[in-house]
């Protein structure tokens, strides 16, 4: 009896995750700026992880939690990579500027 109640509560939580994902898809579609879309997609990924955990425990196969771990890590890395790509237009750029290049560029500009 208690396990049946737990399964029903998990189903309610999973439906709540689906509703939240639908709302976030709306913001990702109508978002006026790029950063709105990045924020909505990042939050969508977090909710997808939670939905995956709930769903794999509802159907009684906890293997889906492994996939949820993978998705949680990939979501963060993908967000940072997308932000870096849209800032620098390339991924092969160091996040901290090297002092050598700076001096050479300054020298080139001055000379």
């Amino acid at each position: 009896m208690a396990s049946v109640v737990m399964v029903y509560i998990c189903v309610i939580g999973a439906i709540g995750m689906l509703v939240g994902m639908a709302l976030l898809l709306g913001r990702a579609i109508i978002g006026p700026t790029f950063y709105d879309r990045a924020l909505a997609v990042n939050s969508f990924g977090t909710k997808a992880v939670l939905f995956l955990c709930l769903f794999s425990l509802i159907i009684g196969r906890p293997d889906g939690v492994d996939i949820a771990i993978l998705y949680a890590l990939m979501n963060f890395i993908a967000t940072v990579a997308i932000l870096k790509f849209f800032r620098y237009r390339a991924l092969d750029v160091p996040l901290a500027k090297r002092p050598e290049r700076k001096t050479t560029r300054k020298g080139g500009r001055n000379g």
């Binding site: 509703v19 939240g20 709302l23 909710k47």
Partner: peptide, 8 residues
């Protein structure tokens, strides 16, 4: 979570 989605 739903409150955050509505807020977004």
């Amino acid at each position: 979570v739903i409150a955050g989605a509505i807020g977004i």
